[in-house]
């Protein structure tokens, strides 16, 4: 009886191991944005926390105050007037890769990925669909993607600067 239990436990532990998901992460991913109508409206954040799992889950979190602009004055306006970063310090994205079958996390290569998820920013959550590329190199993934967001959708009143921005994601994982 004792033996059977041991074997059962071992078998359980082994199946657990077989299905163990691989999670890759970074604390210093890069996300930038640029206005399609004004090149000067551009900023980069290099402290993006992100995790990607071979079960398809993908998350990004960043701090609004971590966006760096070329012009300090623009950075102040962005934080104080538009994103209200003291009230809403963080933006979060939680999503799933919808075409997981096309991606082999244990084989080097470049794969197209479609990610669907919720973006929470400026206190507003919105469902977004993003097309991107996952590159596996030496067993480590990196993610590149870009998509457009409409400021009004997130109740950001920046009409006198820009209506939309293009978000650019570039994260290398460990």
């Amino acid at each position: 009886m004792k033996q059977i239990i041991t074997i059962l436990l071992l078998a359980l532990a082994m199946t657990g191991d077989l299905h163990a998901q691989k999670i890759f992460g970074t604390r210093n991913g890069k996300i930038g944005f640029i206005s399609p109508t004004d090149d000067d409206v551009k900023a980069v954040n290099n402290e993006v926390s992100s995790r990607i799992s071979d079960n398809g889950q993908i998350t990004f979190s960043l701090l609004i105050k971590g966006f760096r602009f070329k012009y300090a004055e623009m950075q102040d306006h962005f934080n104080d007037q538009y994103l209200e970063s003291t009230k809403f310090p963080r933006a979060d994205f939680k999503g799933m890769i919808t075409n997981l079958g096309d991606i082999n996390f244990s084989k080097d290569g470049t794969y197209k990925a479609i990610v669907k998820g919720d973006l929470l920013m400026h206190g507003v959550t919105k469902n977004v669909l993003v097309n991107g590329v996952i590159e596996i190199k030496g067993g480590k993934p990196s993610v590149k993607a870009s998509f457009v967001i409409v400021m009004k959708d997130f109740k950001i009143d920046a009409a006198n600067v820009t209506d939309k921005v293009t978000i650019e994601i570039n994260c290398q994982y460990q």
């Binding site: 604390r27 290099n46 402290e47 926390s49 960043l62 105050k65 971590g66 963080r90």
Partner: peptide, 15 residues
Amino acid sequence: GICTGYIPDANVVIN
């Protein structure tokens, strides 16, 4: 450095 905030389960960021 300057503190930009906290990301739960990950880190506090200073840059």
